[in-house]
Design a protein around this nucleic acid. Sequence first.
DNA 1: TCGATAGAAACGTCGTACCTTTCCTGGCCG
DNA 2: CGGCCAGGAAAGGTACGACGTTTCTATCGA
Lengths: 253, 253
Amino acid sequence: MSSANRKSAGLPDQAAPAALPVTRLRPAYQQVADQLRELILDGSLAPGDRLPPESEIGGNFGVSRSTVREALRVLASQGLVKTSRGTTGGTFVSSVDPDQISDYLEASIGLMSGSAALPLSAILEARELLEVPATALAAQRREQHHLDALHAAMEREKRSRGRGMKFREHQHFHDVIMQATGNGLLTMMTEPVFHVLRTRFLKPSPVTHEGFWAMVDQEHEEITERIAAGDGEGASEAMRSHLVNIRDAYGEA
Amino acid sequence: MSSANRKSAGLPDQAAPAALPVTRLRPAYQQVADQLRELILDGSLAPGDRLPPESEIGGNFGVSRSTVREALRVLASQGLVKTSRGTTGGTFVSSVDPDQISDYLEASIGLMSGSAALPLSAILEARELLEVPATALAAQRREQHHLDALHAAMEREKRSRGRGMKFREHQHFHDVIMQATGNGLLTMMTEPVFHVLRTRFLKPSPVTHEGFWAMVDQEHEEITERIAAGDGEGASEAMRSHLVNIRDAYGEA
DNA sequence: TCGATAGAAACGTCGTACCTTTCCTGGCCG
DNA sequence: CGGCCAGGAAAGGTACGACGTTTCTATCGA
């Protein structure tokens, strides 16, 4: 269909020469992806809707199935569609999955981290700025199962002595607090930050003085207590000092 | 990474049907994408590095070029690589562009917004939680050119009376404050939130009482003054009350 | 020396054939 | 009558192979 193959008979374009580093023509797979995305974003295709088979889409756009597949990979990796196999399979418009967004954010932050554009200090700062007030929210909104999860996390943390495991549990504790805020947007944005800190900036030998873990455990307990008591201000203050105390566990690679 | 590959020659599976939507084996293009992403994320491939030609990658992984191309589309749409044509072309590891991440976040948040998973109240809450303490940071770190930009934004805001333009300038004022924090991570995460609020939740008739814009202008001026004075606490308090006051300008569609 | 041109390298697109997964249908057999 | 199982059908997954297109490079000729 769409005349992607213009032999350039006449005058396509020469009036706009400067400042356009774009390829003369966007690749077909991008154009297809753009048009399909348009249909999804403006609501013509609702979540759950099934797209036509790949071969049929290709027919409609006048491109080959390979091209359609590349376009679908783009949309799929943006979380807009999902594909499954089999008779009932196909390509379906999918509602956005927060976890996938978090994964993307994590990869992006990880890539930028360490460079001048995003030094460790900025990540730590963002983390504190987010988590301290979020802890106050958590104290006001926590449900019983959040408290249970916090206690369970602390329990597992005390038991696991390996450094890596220890910090995995440590992250989990903080994740639960963010979830207790009940604000999905906050959770979505903070968890990647935590994860990047743990996987990329955790010092090989995180602590010198041996009382470190005892301190962490105790601070976690205090935070949990304040949250359980619904004491927002106290909880966020405890969190603030906790974050300051564990700063040293992170360092540049 | 739960063991997804059960050979299980005999009994296929109906003993554990639930909660495992995974395909027996991830598609090849995903595995290739995963491995390449791994190489990029762990630093084996630095930004600017050129990957081997598609055919060669296929040879290394033992898959066809089509499969490699689908994998590359995935990585490209995640911003990890860029491709160009011609002799000097190829696939290159790209340094992450914060603007691109913001665009992605904005699209995702926009898609989720309004649903039960992400109500307007959560967006407003996240915005306040982020911006109030960020304003204090901005007051401590602002450079002269930030102050100039703030004054310029207010000036343009006073002049433009159209509602849409007005709010575009309004967003710009807040963007500048985030930039003044000097923390790229914060800027990257907050600007999409602002933008979604403006483009998707701005009420058709934002205000009832006519003194609204005068109030906004005056509050912006006070915030700017506090920031100029380096008064972090005062600035963040002014911001807090400003955000509360403009809440009514946003509403569900 | 300079410009035009031919070549080469790499991505972009097409088309076809075949495999794999899944579901559905219908028939065989107890 | 009812359940099990084989085969068909639909749709995505993979493989080749061929050719187009873009862009740079190097060479040749005026």
